[in-house]
Amino acid sequence: MQHHLNDEYLMDYAAGSASQPLSLLVATHLALCPECRAKVAAYEALGGALLDSAAPSAVAPDLLQSVLDRLDEPTAPESRIRRQPQVFDETTRRLIPEPLRSHLGASLDALAWSSIGRGVHQVELDIGGAEGFKTRFYRIRGGCGVPQHTHDGSELTLVLGGSFSDGIGRFGRGDVSIADGDVVHQPIADPGDDCYCLAITDGPLKLTGPVGRFLNIFMRY
């Protein structure tokens, strides 16, 4: 893996201020990247130290007693509820780590793909708690690409399978491409396996190529 998340994203995730879609992308990268996991642990340790050195505020006087009274309450077997019966095929389980897998909710072959151009399919994910963000999962056939575009905001793309190249570099499994608003880029899947990637944008895409400009009129990216 060559392209990691920047520290500010890791810190926002550790602090809990990252939006839901960004948190989904960060956590899915973390599943594939022990290096960034260690950084998040360090940022969480900073959170622990800040908590420990915070000035105390008075809680309700009976709060301790009401917590003590509840210690023996039976608890819902959380983990069992969460572990649903296997709805994912082997390829999906191998390629797509949690938490993304649960958010997709179905095997790669069973997703509600819609075609957005030659060799490119997408599903839009509803992550919740995320105004202004778009979260999309792409399947790009080798040699095909998303039309050239820029963004109003920034776009983060995490590769899960296959790889793509854009003028900036080559991105394989686990890599994250970070494109700010002023970057014009055109990711093209490398020949070979289908490229699967998760992309989040915090602004509408603006298509810029000659074909793109034409498509822009028709497609609400």
Binding site: A27, T28, L32, R94, P97, E98, R101
Partner: peptide, 13 residues
């Protein structure tokens, strides 16, 4: 909050 699942076989240890 989206989080890793430490038990997930797809997780890189």
């Amino acid at each position: 909050r989206p989080q890793i699942d430490p038990e997930d076989p797809a997780l890189v240890p």
